[in-house]
Design a protein around this nucleic acid. Structure first.
Lengths: 227, 227
DNA sequence: GGTGCAAGCCTTGTGTACAAGTTAGATGTG
DNA sequence: CACATCTAACTTGTACACAAGGCTTGCACC
């Protein structure tokens, strides 16, 4: 059961329904899931090990708001993992290529529909699925976690969408993979991630105002507080 | 406090004091750590998310015994991560090189001392420290987890030590890094990991006897049960 | 002797009670 | 009115109690 709670919470977070910085009350969650705090705590603990949420003692659980340093590190980690995966992988087979094409189509559909949250999710999921298609579970899980953290970063620092540009990049990467040119795919991936990172609006770290704002804005409330 | 329990348990496991397959009793651990089962469970849950232990419902917690498939996947993941890290990293500076040399010296000392468990630990830690020296925390944590799993694999499948050969490889990789040739270091790393994996004594998967033995050997008892 | 069954012990799973600490708001005081 | 202080409500932290299911062992029966 707690695995389900973890999954549900994570979905809500990466799909943008719970904003970074939100407080997650054990009691409210327990009530919402119709379980005791015990299971909620287990789920939150699991998410903490994945760096999705963190707890401040006696204060509460909060959805992580990645710092500029953490954001840079996560992007660098993604570059290393994705580049390493593509460079050490054999070219994809027909079945894998088919599913890759399916994802690209999904992205285009989301763009046409104009669903921003869904789009943010799909943009991250692209990289995830590529690795998942490789069939390496540990690596896929690593990528899932990094992607989730990336979404937290995007939600915090990416006001406008470079989504269209991302989609173009994705098409290029997918094209290289489909052509069997993993080396080119790796290079394109690297460039793509650098471009996305460069597009983030990360405020000047030495601006004391930013820290102040973070300190003051404490609990944006996770959702409606039913009757 | 539970973080400390997690750390202590993990140390005991990766240093070979608790064998893969051992059962970890919540009650015994609670008694040993002078805490309630609650905190022990939290620590075990954390280790479960890291794929170090797993729980079989109403049966107990067990230190993971990686299957042949999992072992292959973990090695492939390590290759991707390590290769990607080296390929996307800038050459090391003097301070980093110094600490790299220190590790090599440590390895040699352990070899001379002949401490097999310590050696297994250091052999894995080499790759860990390289990435840690890069200063990327998320990637370092990923590598720590993969390394821990690799140790479980080694403890299970590596009867004799290719430790000397590994040390030679490590010297070569370190040498390339020190020379500032990250590309060569990456290639050497790849070859090294392939060699280590090839040296594993993984039994024929289609041998039913192996599965039987796994099924039968249930709980080798985690340690002495004295008071 | 062999076999099936059942009771008791031991395991984890989950809920609940209380302890410790933080925050917000009311209240009294200058 | 401004400000310090104290109290009350709410947070997580931890222990504990009980529930549910699995394994072992002893016993009855064939």
């Amino acid at each position: 059961m707690p695995k389900g709670i973890e999954k549900t919470l994570l979905s809500a977070i990466v799909e943008g329904r719970i904003a970074p910085g939100s407080r997650l009350s054990e009691n409210q969650l327990a009530e919402a899931f119709h379980v005791s705090r015990t299971l909620v705590r287990e789920a939150l603990t699991r998410l903490e090990t994945r760096h999705i949420v963190s707890v401040r003692p006696r204060r509460g659980w909060f959805v992580n708001r990645p710092s500029a340093e953490e954001a840079a590190a996560v992007f660098a980690a993604r570059r290393a993992v994705e580049y390493g995966f593509l460079k050490t992988s054999a070219p994809f087979g027909p079945a894998q290529i088919e599913r890759l094409k399916a994802h690209i189509a999904e992205e285009r559909a989301a763009i046409d529909a104009g669903d921003k949250a869904q789009l943010t999710y799909l943009m991250g999921d692209f990289h995830c699925r590529i690795i998942a298609l490789g069939g390496n579970d540990p690596l896929a899980e690593i990528m899932r976690n990094l992607t989730a953290r990336t979404i937290l970063i995007s939600l915090r620092y990416q006001p406008a969408e470079g989504a269209l540009a991302s989609h173009r990049d994705h098409c290029g990467i997918a094209g290289a993979i489909i052509a069997g040119d993993m080396d080119r795919a790796a290079d394109l991936s690297l460039a793509h991630l650098e471009e996305v990172e460069a597009g983030l609006r990360i405020p000047d770290a030495r601006d004391p105002l930013e820290d102040l704002r973070n300190t003051l804005r404490l609990d944006p409330a996770p959702g409606g507080q039913g009757h």
